[in-house]
Amino acid sequence: MLAALERRLRPVLLPTGVLLGTLVVWEIAWRIFNVPRFVVPLPSGILAETWAWRGYLLTHSWVTLYETLAGFALSIAVGTPLAVMLVYSPVLRSALYPLLVVTQAVPKVAIAPVLLLLLGAGEVSKVVIAFLVAFFPIVVNTATGLAATPPELLDLSRSYRASRLKTFIKVRFPMALPFFFSGLKVAVTLSVIGAVVGEFVGSDKGLGYVIVSATSYWKSNLAFAAMLLLSVMAVGLFGLVELVERLVCPWYALAREQQEVVEELSVKDLEKIRAAAG
């Protein structure tokens, strides 16, 4: 029983242990070597600062979260239909795909100042930057998934004279869902980065702004607190997408778990199991 619990918790306990261990080493080493606190602060200091500035940090977190989610939503709304068009129309594919690759080759950090000039220093420019970095993985993954439909299933649908729309709804799109979700997982973390890049370039709100202004006043504790919240946000959003994936296509996760190799048992383990079974 205890062994089973341990196996289930291991994926959580191990990384948590490594993280806590790193923090402890960090704290002790900094105290021993007396590293200047304004360069890299202590973990305990960061936590204290996060608590002290909680209201301020929460307000700015809310702005960044809002920009991220708006950009992410926009990238789904644009990226998914675009992927469908690319798969269904060879003309559009040859016309648009090279251009899409070009838009991705341009560094977003480089066009961020231009976008701010065009769209102003408000939230809109951040949403657009978040969208620009996030939509490409959604397009590529969804298009790959749609193109990966087994040709036999397409032949089968055609032999039943099912319409293309029906085939799309009943076969192609559900088949592509796992690909779609792996695109979303990449996209959601990229949206956070996009929003923060926008805030770096120019804003008076958001965690990106907090980091820029805190570092310019040597308040590294506060800057690290903002970084901490950004990480929590990105990880949380990633987990949320994964949760939705499990709810929408449980068959995918279940089929994957089914295929996982069960670990080897030693003779001793086997004897223990036998003894427990009586």
Binding site: E152, D155, Y160, M175, C249
Partner: peptide, 26 residues
């Protein structure tokens, strides 16, 4: 038509996979 691979729909049960033909035929 039966192919070399079963190409069943993984989100459908056995019964619903069999009924797939009926649905696609309208």
């Amino acid at each position: 038509i039966v192919f070399q691979s079963a190409v069943l729909l993984p989100w459908r049960t056995v019964l619903d996979n069999v009924l797939f033909s009926i649905e696609m035929l309208g």
